[in-house]
Design a protein around this nucleic acid. Sequence first.
DNA 1: CACAAGACCTGGCAGC
DNA 2: TGCTGCCAGGTCTTGT
Length: 271
Amino acid sequence: MPELPEVETTRRGIGPYVEGHRIERIIVRDRRFRYPIAEDLETRLAGQRVRGLERRGKYLLLALDEGTLLLHLGMSGSLRVLPALSPPIAHDHVDLILDSGLAVRLHDPRRFGALVWTEDSPETHPLLSALGPEPLGPVFDGEYLYRASRPRRCAVKILIMDAAVVVGVGNIYANESLYLAGIHPGRACNRIAATRYGLLAGAIRGVLGQAIEEGGTTLRDFVREDGNPGYFAQSLHVYGRAGEPCHRCSRPITLKRIGQRSSFYCGHCQR
DNA sequence: CACAAGACCTGGCAGC
DNA sequence: TGCTGCCAGGTCTTGT
C-alpha cells in the first residue's frame, strides 16, 4: 500500500491527534511483524508524551519523552484514529491509547510492517542509517541521480527504487515518473545522459508532490486516518493500465516484469 | 561491490 | 459454489 505520499498523508492526518498527547497505554494483539514486536514495548511507551511526528522515507518517527518509536507500514499497513473503545476487526494488531480518549490503531493484514522503539537518535538506527536523501529535499536533483547511476548497470527503474539511492519511490511512482520523463524503465542506468536525469528527478518530485496533495493513491485498501481513500489513482498514466491507450500517443501500455516487479510503460513514448 | 532471487504474509481475483 | 494459482503498494537476507 504505502509509498512516500501515502506515508506523508498518514503523518499529516494523525499528527494533530498525537503531537503533545500522552500515550496512556498500548495494546498489542499480535507481535508477529517483520521484526517481532519487543516484549517490553508496552512498558516503554506507557505514560510517554509524543513530542513530534516526523517522516523519514517510508518510516514514521514518533519522538517521545524518551527515545523514538519507528513505524513502517510495509505493503498493507494503515493507521486510523478512532475512539479508544472501538471494537477491533481482523488485523487490527496494535492500539496506542491516547489521553484524549482516542486511539491510533495499526491495521496490517500482511504484517510486513515494523514497530521498533529505539533509545538512540533515530538517524543512526540500522533501519535508517543507510537511507538515501529525501526526494523532495534539497540534495536530490538530476546531478545527484546521474552521479549515483555511474557505477551501476542496473535498469533505471531499479535504481530509483533503491532506498539507498533515494527514499520513498515505490513501484507506482517509479512507473509514473519514468513515463513523465519519457525514459524506458528497463534502460541501463549508466546509459542515460545527465540532462535526462534532470527530467527524471523533476518528474519524481512532481509526481510525489502532486500525490501528497491529493491524499495518496488508493488501489485496494489504502485509507487515510479518517478512513477515506486518497484520490491520486485518478491521475495515474501507466500504473495498472496494461493494454489501455497511452495518454500521449494512444498506443497500448506495455506490462513487463523488471526485477520481479510489474513495470508499465509506453514503448513508443519511453526510450 | 553490484545484482538476482528468495523470503516474509494475507487477501482478492481470474479461471476452471 | 469452491478450488487453484497468481498477483499485490516493501525491503531485508542470501547467494553468485
